[in-house]
Design a protein around this nucleic acid. Structure first.
Lengths: 209, 209
DNA sequence: TAGATTGTTAATCGATTAACAATC
DNA sequence: TAGATTGTTAATCGATTAACAATC
């Protein structure tokens, strides 16, 4: 199984969705699925499903289809979800607290190891079993808890500084929820998620409609 | 100003980012900005900035640039953010509660009018001034509070049913946070946001790196 | 006029879709 | 063999980038 192939961003989101369908199908006792089944369940075209999979190998049997459990395992491996990942959330505001409790992360193998903040009133407290630590302890905690991923959930003005600290601490991938462009060293994987922009996509198309 | 032009999805996210930069520039007293300034601040190319704006009209002055406040106003109008939008969140779990308190929505003109749930233990309570209402009261509340947008923050199994109810209640745009494909009538604007898939994007590139 | 920057067209790049040979 | 479905190539579609005339 190859890795680090540059594939369309959208392919990763689709693979994630395929995997969820596959495990559900498997649990229902459906052992064999076709690209058409996957496509229908996930809202894409069968050609797209086959193309997405073709980046990584040959997982099916011509004339037959795919074994649902097997393909599920392959996709989880491709996505790097055959193991657990330790995640730091920076920012113990509403968004940070929320993300830390979001079960969807845990279900896919992401363990929120610690929430970091620099507000002394918050540090030392817990949010459903997750410690809030001072941002100054980031470096040691990253090592101690083997944290590799960081989620930035602080206001825009603080985002770049936090990103720099995360990188310095040894984190290798970052999701930035702050609505601002930040830059990091090129060997760090960075992704920005703009929650408000998602709603703005709706209002763009609804205005004057 | 035209509307309803089909533009690349990514353009909307970028316009959102441009607008945040522009208002900041305006507040700093920078009255004129070039596509190069905008590009640098938002991490895109100057050509991209000009192209994105060109879908909607001519907002600049050749040889000079753009007036920051003016262009800000234009973009906010394009995105439909020159007015407030009333939003319903369905699901008073961790994610729903979090999103309801997320200040980033409010700052862009999105008012969370009500959180809906069908758990009797939650109904009647408040989350920082926002009422939790029973899902059965959706239809009346949507009319009463003039709600036009819905956010689905329920488990995957319940998402389609909730979407159907939102549509029946008269909602016109939906963000689906559940990791499943749902379908709605074609005159409803639908968008799926997969928080876990965002992290999976990181792990895809980090595995074996 | 010289320098700067827009708006727009054409070229390039990349992703999706259609078609079909391979093969169960 | 006939029917079904994969894997892959070629065609299409769409988005980004480069280039430049227009114009301040």
């Amino acid at each position: 199984m190859l890795k680090k192939i540059k594939i369309p961003d959208a392919t990763i989101g689709r693979l994630s969705l395929y995997s969820r369908y596959l495990i559900e199908a498997h649990e229902k006792g459906i052992t064999t699925v076709s690209s058409q089944h996957i496509a229908k369940a996930t809202g894409v075209t069968p050609a797209q499903v086959r193309k997405d999979l073709a980046y990584f190998g040959e997982f099916g049997t011509r004339g037959v289809g795919y074994n649902s459990k097997e393909l599920y395992n392959y996709i989880m491996k491709i996505l790097g979800l055959d193991k657990h990942w330790s995640v730091a959330i920076v920012g113990a505001g509403n968004l940070g607290k929320a993300l830390s409790q979001y079960k969807g992360f845990y279900q896919r193998g992401f363990d929120i190891a610690c929430i970091f903040d620099n507000d002394p009133k918050k540090v030392g407290k817990k949010i459903s079993n997750i410690n809030i630590c001072h941002l100054d302890s980031l470096n040691e905690k990253v090592k101690e808890l083997k944290i590799t991923l960081g989620i930035i959930a602080v206001p825009a003005q603080a985002a770049q500084e936090v990103a720099d600290k995360l990188v310095k601490a040894g984190i290798r991938g970052i999701i930035n929820f702050a609505p601002i462009n930040i830059t990091v060293d090129e060997n760090i994987i960075l992704r920005r998620v703009d929650l408000s922009a998602q709603l703005e996509y709706l209002t763009y198309y609804l205005e004057d409609a």
